[in-house]
Design a protein around this nucleic acid. Structure first.
Lengths: 148, 148
DNA sequence: GATGGACATGGAAGTCGTTTTCAATTAGCC
DNA sequence: GGCTAATTGAAAACGACTTCCATGTCCATC
């Protein structure tokens, strides 16, 4: 565990929401702790492999990362407008996925579930059909300010 | 509707499984009907927009397309080894997604669900952890031969 | 049959997230 | 201190996808 990986993990922990590798890199830069983009990617891949972060893909195919608070598999509901995300209970889906796979005779079944919408705070000023303007409208409560 | 788009749609209809734009382009080339890659992408985007094909992203983030047989939203169970795919009943998930979104006060909720595994025919010779070798092991029943 | 405009095509070049390469640096250990 | 293995990171490569733009095609109108 190098200081670079520690920094990645710490900044990631300071984000309530999903961030991309590039955003994380910029955040580290802004925090005065320059870490190479390559290293950020490597750290995130390692963290994802060991299940310490959850990974999601946005509409553009970009990978977004979020530190996993509790153990186990999680799914999230994410706002397409402000990027705010929250874990949701998904036992139903877990069971469904397992049952469907079993019934079809499939082994080693994996599933990815991504839930997005426009959150209550964004609905007023959201022109539906808006691009996934994650870096756009100021994030409610300023999740993005990492003073540490 | 030009002959290029018709060709794309026809070859796509000849594939039981999901194919990438690049694969489709190669198939068209092999069929003697050379269609520009750009046109393939455009045609697929248009077809996806009008709901005539379903789109999925593989592990690498590549988009895979499959002609939609019946109307309405569909989900698929896909073999990570041979690429074979089959639609699955997902009313449970539809309802779950809607309920979760509503409970959280989200509007315009969308969901993507992707189910993968190792199909019964692949299990014997599948070293779990294999890469998504879609073009790898000969596909059962030769789904990929498009003599038309 | 000729004219002109709207639209589709497709090769080349560009974009962008991500991975690979490889020399330099650093961590861990005797 | 010295050695080895792992890590770093800038630059280059990669690959899917999009944009650009010159060319081609369809089709109504003259």
């Amino acid at each position: 565990m190098t200081w670079q990986r520690a920094a990645v993990l710490r900044v990631l922990g300071g984000c309530q929401d999903f961030v991309s590798a590039q955003e994380l890199h910029a955040l580290l830069e802004a925090a005065g702790r320059g870490v190479g983009l390559t290293t950020v990617y490597r750290a995130l891949r390692a963290l994802a492999a060991t299940g310490r972060v959850d990974v999601v893909r946005d509409d553009a195919g970009e990978r977004l990362y979020r530190r996993r608070v509790a153990d186990g598999h999680r799914h999230y509901l994410m706002c397409r407008c402000c990027g705010r995300s929250q874990p949701v209970a998904a036992e139903v889906v877990e069971e469904w996925a397992e049952r469907v796979g079993r019934d079809a005779g499939f082994a080693a079944v994996q599933h990815t579930v991504e839930l997005t919408g426009i959150c209550a705070l964004c609905v007023p000023n959201a022109d539906e059909g808006e691009p996934p303007c994650r870096s756009g409208p100021a994030r409610h409560g300023e999740h993005r300010t990492h003073s540490n």
